[in-house]
Design a binder for these strands. Structure first.
Length: 553
DNA sequence: TTGATGAAGTTTTTT
DNA sequence: ACTTCATCAA
């Protein structure tokens, strides 16, 4: 253990003075606002390192970090492990709001009585069933009820955690804030809330307006701002800064502080969505083939109605063999272990050489189920017979992997061979009712959909699961991510139609995902879906949004 | 059956 | 800003 004034940030130069202040703060609560790429996660990781290594957070006290997304909470935990090592990081609890709430419910469930009462083996389901099942929406309020009602629960939480980190705090809802207050208001716990009001894009879903001010008052938190941006090249930062000047003038820099020619901003105008799709598919193909840009380093962002905006683009990308992945449909399914199992097997069965997929499958099929050499040998030969049999059926035409029935048949054969129990063991929730069957149906259905867009099975499989794919998603989904190249499609008045403050924030999030190259598209016409009242509607560029780019392009 | 009118939806995560 | 769906009057 070292003393507080001996501490220095571990192997990173990417901390500006205010971040260092925040990392080493021991007496005050903090409200840290910071724009895109300022290193909020890094600051939190360094702070965890400081607190744990100097003993400001002394054993057995722990740090609680609360995020919104599972991904974000994993990332933060991983970063802390990297900074201060596995052993100290064991006292760093990184949870989502929902996970934190569920832990409280599971530990203090008997506190819930009357109409809140819950059975011991309650489930999380689509609707609230008295005593037996709750919904996601019930979790945080029930945790609040417990903490408010039970002094034992309150004290247990307060005794456990000496420090609390709140990530992406601009998106905190009323209920979530209530949970934080009921646990930690007027206690010894030191809080750090981190976020960016300019990136508040979940207002319509209940994110509290002015949450930073409210929190700063309630918790007497000291406000701090980070000004640096370690993500984007200067040209992009100048454009972002022009938007900051409009959204939050005090946080803006002088343009002289952002000198340099690096970075690319382009605005491309098109007659219609067909021209747009063709052109984008061509340039993306070019970047990947000739400039050796990784497909996964390219993101295509839309404000809303991804399906509508990307129909033609999908076809154009397929025609050029550009692998892409649509986050709205694929993401949840693709991260399921059973999805990996299915795509790996289809890859192997379709004859593609993929040693990675082969190894992962053998792990499950052979090593998981075999306890001695003989069993292993038998499992292995049974596996090879199955694979060869499927391949043979494909080659003689009795099995067609391009059809729903074909894929469904192979998948059910695969589950049978591995054993349903072994598949269920892949994830805790697969044991619940019909969950596994539904997931398998959805995965097969999604693969069939992708095939109908005119792509080959290997292409479909890579775009479904692999990292080597251009990412297509809504601006909202892109929050917290970064890419070498970002394309924001449809910078038109008709696209960004909501309240200007919120639309501006969304656009800001979109453009600030780009590290090196930002491409904006504007169409004069976009065809409406069939049966629409009006057709071939005229589109108009969003003067303000295009303007930010034009000044710096 | 048609047109007119108005309301609702559009952007999401979570064990 | 624009679509979709429900309802009502003609």
């Amino acid at each position: 253990m070292i003393s507080a004034d001996q501490w220095l940030p571990s192997d990173s130069l990417k901390l500006e003075p205010n971040a260092l202040v925040a990392a080493k703060e021991t007496t005050r609560n903090l409200a840290l606002t910071a724009g895109p790429g300022a290193g909020k996660t890094e600051m939190l990781a360094q702070r965890a390192d400081f607190l744990l290594r100097t003993g400001v957070c002394r054993y057995p006290k722990r740090i609680l970090a609360i995020s919104f997304k599972v991904d974000a909470s994993h990332n933060l935990k991983a970063r802390v492990r990297k900074r201060c090592g596995w052993e100290l990081a064991a006292r760093f609890d990184s949870h989502t709001f929902h996970a934190f709430a569920k832990r409280i419910i599971d530990r203090f469930r008997p506190v819930l009585t009357g109409r809140d009462a819950l059975d011991e083996d309650y489930t999380v389901g689509p609707s609230r069933i008295y005593r037996r099942a709750i919904t996601f929406a019930d979790m945080v309020p029930l945790a609040v009820t417990i903490v408010e009602r039970s002094a034992i629960a309150r004290n247990a939480i307060r005794k456990t955690y000496s420090h609390v980190f709140l990530d992406e705090f601009q998106d905190c809802t009323e209920e979530q804030y209530k949970l934080i207050k009921s646990c930690f208001l007027d206690t010894a716990a030191k809080l750090v809330a981190v976020g960016d009001t300019k990136q508040r894009i979940m207002g319509w879903a209940g994110a509290m307006e002015g949450i930073f001010r409210i929190y700063a008052t309630d918790f007497q938190a000291h406000p701090l701002n980070l000004y640096q941006n370690f993500r984007s090249e200067p040209r992009l930062r100048r454009m972002q800064n022009a938007m900051v000047r409009v959204m939050d003038p005090p946080a803006a820099l002088k343009d002289e502080q952002l000198q340099g020619d690096e970075g690319i901003i382009e605005i491309h105008h098109f007659e219609d969505a067909t021209g747009e799709a063709t052109h984008l598919a061509d340039v993306i193909h070019d970047w990947i083939e000739h400039d050796e840009v990784e497909p996964s380093d390219i993101a295509l962002l839309v404000s809303r109605q991804q399906d509508l905006y990307c129909q033609e683009l999908r076809a154009a990308l397929n025609a050029r063999g550009v692998p892409f992945r649509e986050e709205d449909k694929t993401q949840d399914l693709a991260s399921e272990p059973v999805a990996g199992l299915i795509t790996d097997f289809l890859l192997v069965a379709s004859g593609a050489s993929s040693p990675e997929a082969h190894r992962r499958l053998l792990d499950i099929v052979v090593y998981e189920s075999a306890f001695d050499d003989e069993q292993e040998h038998r499992a292995r030969s049974r596996w090879h017979r199955f694979v060869n049999d499927v391949r043979y059926q494909i080659s003689n035409g009795s099995l067609n992997l391009g059809s729903r029935t074909g894929i469904a048949r192979v998948v059910s054969g695969l589950v049978e061979l591995i054993g349903r129990d072994s598949v269920v063991a892949l994830s805790a929730d697969y044991a619940q009712g019909d969950r596994l069957n539904q997931l398998i149906d959805n995965i097969v259905g999604r693969l069939v959909d992708l095939l109908q867009d005119g792509a080959d099975l290997p292409d479909v499989l890579t775009s479904f699961s692999a990292d080597r794919a251009v990412r297509i998603m809504s601006i909202h989904k892109s929050k917290g991510l970064e890419f070498d190249t970002v394309i924001v499609m449809g910078v038109e008045k008709q696209t960004f139609w909501g309240r200007i403050e919120e639309e501006r924030s969304a656009y800001f999030v979109g453009i600030s995902r780009a590290k090196r190259r930002l491409l904006l598209t504007v169409c004069e016409h976009r065809e409406r879906p069939e049966g629409a009242r009006r057709w071939d509607l005229q589109r108009t560029p969003h003067a303000e949004f295009v303007g930010y780019a034009e000044s710096y392009a």
